[in-house]
């Protein structure tokens, strides 16, 4: 799914990063526990979370996650944005809840980092 479509579905704003509407994201993952994302997140996916601190960006960076979307209208602070810029992590924000965001993306065809293919 193209980023431009994800942005539209989530009614999201782009805060930073090398946003390119043509970038393809195939997989969605969501958690407020970063260890869960480290364990199950897939490279190139979008991470949806209501947690807003710099560790979300560090997590995305080490796990090769391309896009982070902060939900519930949470606005990340300057440190988070700067770190995201530095590491080329694209940051979205949406007013939607985690549930609504995941639901809409799944319904529109975004795949999940499902439990069955977790092996390294």
């Amino acid at each position: 799914m193209k980023l431009t479509k994800i942005k539209e579905i989530l009614e999201a704003d782009v805060l930073t990063g090398k946003y390119d509407p043509e970038i393809e994201v195939q997989i969605g993952c969501s958690s407020d526990l970063m260890s869960e994302i480290l364990a199950f997140g897939k490279p190139g996916s979008i991470l949806l979370t209501s947690l807003t601190n710099i560790q979300v960006i560090n997590t995305a960076n080490v796990a090769d996650i391309k896009v982070v979307c902060f939900v519930m209208g949470k606005i990340p602070d300057e440190n988070i944005i700067n770190l995201a810029k530095k590491n080329d992590v694209i940051v979205f924000i949406t007013k939607l809840t985690t549930f609504e965001s995941c639901g809409r993306l799944y319904k529109n065809g975004l795949k999940s980092c499902s439990y069955s293919n977790l092996d390294k």
Binding site: G28, C29, S30, S31, F40, L48, M72, G73, K95, L96, T97, T98, F99, E100, S101, C102, G103, R104, L105, Y106, K107, L110, S112, C113, S114, Y115, S116
Partner: peptide, 22 residues
Amino acid sequence: TELSTFEIVGKLYELGIHGNRR
């Protein structure tokens, strides 16, 4: 469920369960 948060939420959504309105 064995499914991930993203996937189970997606499936619930497809059953017509939505997020809370904000």
